[in-house]
Design a protein around this nucleic acid. Structure first.
Lengths: 142, 142
DNA sequence: CTCAAAGTTGACTAAATCAGTCGGGAATGT
DNA sequence: ACATTCCCGACTGATTTAGTCAACTTTGAG
């Protein structure tokens, strides 16, 4: 499976964004400072998030990002697939080519990884950004 | 998460072993041929499987490996942790050190990755080697 | 009692991936 | 005008992965 710091950062950054964007767009600089993530790296990440319509950008001074939808309409699976491409444990295409005919051991395990993918994906599909961003987290920190 | 071809190969190889070891130990050479996995790579993998008491080895001519327990007593989680070390999605220790006090956004996501770990681990704990190794797979192939 | 077949082990390496940086833009509010 | 912000492609060092190599020990068979 592919679950890198890019995905982790994306979730952290969007959780931050979800908490702060009510008072206007949030700049990556702010997120960078609060979450301790490299600004330049965040730029890369948000580029992708924007392409996937998860956030929208406002340029210029006082610009930044805001969520494109309500936090309760954003599944974590979307976030992860936006930044990390697909959440696929194994790409068994090689084996398929070698004649994975549905009856061999290769296919037994193949099926296993497919099940795993489904298992993980359903986890992230059930989780919403709003599940992570709670107002009271803000208050407790300041 | 760490789920590499080592883990995949280990599961494939052990499934193979589970099917064949009734007629005496199975050599890595045979597994290598049947499953199309590099012999030298298999050696590495089985070294670890032996250390974790999942298989036992018989040296010399006509030697090979056999399962140390019944296939129905071997959880996939054991196999994977034997070859790939731990199935940990993220090691948040860095963040912990930076003062992850249970109230910040970092911890919200931290909790998420812990949940995910639990979710994945329970998947592999429920799966037994015997779930993959069915006799009829053999017959169908020859 | 020799030889070939098997496991044992540590070191090594090419290729890929990851995490992050750099430099130079373009837009825009003040 | 100009600082602040997003935009974007190219680059890079470090790490990990997948796999190889070489040299060894053990043991069954002839």
């Amino acid at each position: 499976m592919k679950l890198t710091s890019k995905g982790r950062y994306a979730v952290m950054a969007l959780t931050d964004l979800a908490l702060y964007y009510k008072n206007g767009p949030v700049s990556l600089r702010d997120i960078s400072l609060r979450q301790n993530i490299s600004l330049l790296y965040l730029e890369q990440i948000f580029l992708k998030l924007r392409k996937y319509k998860i956030v929208e950008s406002i340029r210029g001074t006082k610009g930044g990002y805001r969520l494109n939808r309500k936090a309760s309409d954003i599944r974590l699976s979307e976030i992860l697939s936006a930044v990390d491409e697909n959440v696929k444990t194994v790409r068994c295409i090689k084996h398929l080519k070698k004649g994975c005919n549905g009856k061999s051991i290769k296919c037994n395990t193949h099926k296993l990884w497919d099940e795993l993918d489904g298992h993980i994906n359903s986890f992230f599909e059930k989780k919403l950004l709003s599940d992570l961003a709670h107002k009271n987290d803000l208050e407790k920190r300041f």
